[in-house]
Simulated assay, not measured.
Amino acid sequence: MVRSLEEMELYTKKIEVNKLTPGDILAYDLYLDHGAMIIPAGTKLTVNHIVRLKNMEEKIVSIDLTKVYIKSIQDSKVLMKKAMDGKPITKKEVVKMLQPLLKETRREKNIVRLLLQLQSQDDYTFQHTVNIGIVAGVIAKWMGYTDEEELSKITIAGTLHDIGKSKIPMQILKKPGPLTPVEFEVIKKHPRLGYDILNKMPSYEDEIKLAVRQHHEREDGRGYPQGLVGDDIHPYAKIIAVADVYHAMTSKRVYRGRISPFLVLDHLHSNMDRLDTEIILVFVKNMLNCLIGSKVGLSDGRKGHVTFVDPKAIGYPVIRLEGSHKIIDLYEQKDLTVEEILIE
């Protein structure tokens, strides 16, 4: 059953007033110091609103991304349904779906914070579809891609990487536990199925189609569906593969909870023979830069801030406990783990 927007969780982000743009929606009522409300929650901000906020010397406000994100999720479902029914999915449709989220990507440079802000309780398959496009585009920029057309292709390919799953039985996709060998062989068909879907539509460039077909290929030849190695794998597919593994492991699934980003980055760093080494190194470095200073919840219920991550022990950051000056090195206290990253 589709829930109304009113029933959805509120997705908000704090933003500096000087980064507001007309059309942003205010998340919470805004009051003057003496208690009078000046702008109610839900207001679509105009140029005049933004000027007023600047004149009031407001520094930061919260905007509501609920409609933006939920619409993207719903649009993703529509695209998957069209693919399942054999109907064409135009490149123009995908670009239109992504535009509001790309706007937030340009404003929010910290990809960890952005993904947390866009963390949905909705169906994992559709959340994953939307977010991989965003993450793949960010990684491409970190890798030095600057051409907007090329960045657009990578983002579109990331968004469509699992479109072939529209042809996979739902009972396999949503199975609350490990797949049998037979079921896994069915799942392994989705990259080629996705390629076949896009190959029927002339608007998609070969690079996009190849990235969709090859996003599960691995450097050591142990990937699928073709068992390609090294330079035989398209660069876009290599970027999407890293984004795919990171987001899948850090997301809540029907058969397990989220895995700490630190442990996932450690896993990626320790398995560089499977994915592209250069992409992994760039990705881990930039993600750790985003995570330093972040607020975290520990497995014993305490909270703190990340102060340091040893490159040789990525999974075990150093934490300064909230409300005190006590420092905990998780490498020395391996009974403790980072359970979640918290938005401040």
Rank of each mutant, 00 (worst) to 15 (best):
R213L: 14
E93Y: 02
Y246P: 01
S120K: 00
D29P: 01
Q226F: 09
K91G: 03
H190C: 05
E149D: 14
I111F: 00
S260N: 06
E58Q: 08
A27Q: 01
E16L: 10
I240R: 03
I239C: 08
K81P: 05
G304C: 10
P225C: 07
H234Q: 15
K44C: 11
K92N: 07
E322N: 10
D123N: 06
P317A: 04
L30H: 04
G23C: 06
H215G: 06
D231E: 14
K96A: 09
M287H: 05
R320S: 12
D75V: 05
T43W: 03
L173R: 00
N286K: 10
E9A: 07
E217F: 01
D335V: 12
M170S: 14
V264G: 02
L114E: 02
D335E: 14
E340K: 14
L53A: 05
S166G: 10
R52D: 11
L115E: 12
S203T: 12
L210Y: 09
V61L: 01
L5G: 08
V306Y: 11
G297H: 12
I89P: 03
L321E: 04
F184I: 11
D29M: 10
R258Y: 07
V306Q: 07
A83W: 01
Y224D: 13
V135A: 04
I25F: 04
M84Q: 13
K295I: 12
D266W: 02
H267I: 14
T307Q: 13
F262E: 02
I63W: 00
I39H: 03
L179D: 11
M8N: 07
M1Y: 07
R107W: 07
G227R: 11
T43E: 08
T146W: 02
R222T: 15
D231C: 11
E183P: 01
I208G: 04
M84G: 05
K54C: 07
K252V: 06
M84K: 14
N55I: 10
Q226K: 15
M249P: 01
P202R: 13
I60H: 03
V130H: 00
Y236Q: 08
A41E: 11
L198K: 02
L32Q: 11
K54L: 12
V47E: 15
V78W: 02
N199Q: 09
L193A: 08
E332R: 14
L342V: 10
Y236N: 11
I39F: 04
K54Q: 15
V212D: 09
S166T: 08
Y31E: 05
A313D: 14
S251A: 13
Y145G: 06
Q121A: 09
M249R: 13
T12D: 06
H269D: 12
I240K: 04
P191C: 08
E340N: 15
E16Y: 12
V135R: 00
V296K: 01
I279L: 04
G86E: 09
P235F: 06
S299E: 05
M287L: 14
N110S: 03
T12M: 09
A248S: 13
K189P: 02
E150R: 13
E150W: 04
V282T: 14
P88S: 03
Q214L: 13
L265H: 08
S260C: 07
Q74W: 00
M97A: 00
T337H: 15
I168D: 02
T180I: 06
D266N: 15
Q74Y: 00
T43M: 03
T307W: 04
L298S: 01
T277K: 15
D64M: 00
V138P: 01
P261E: 06
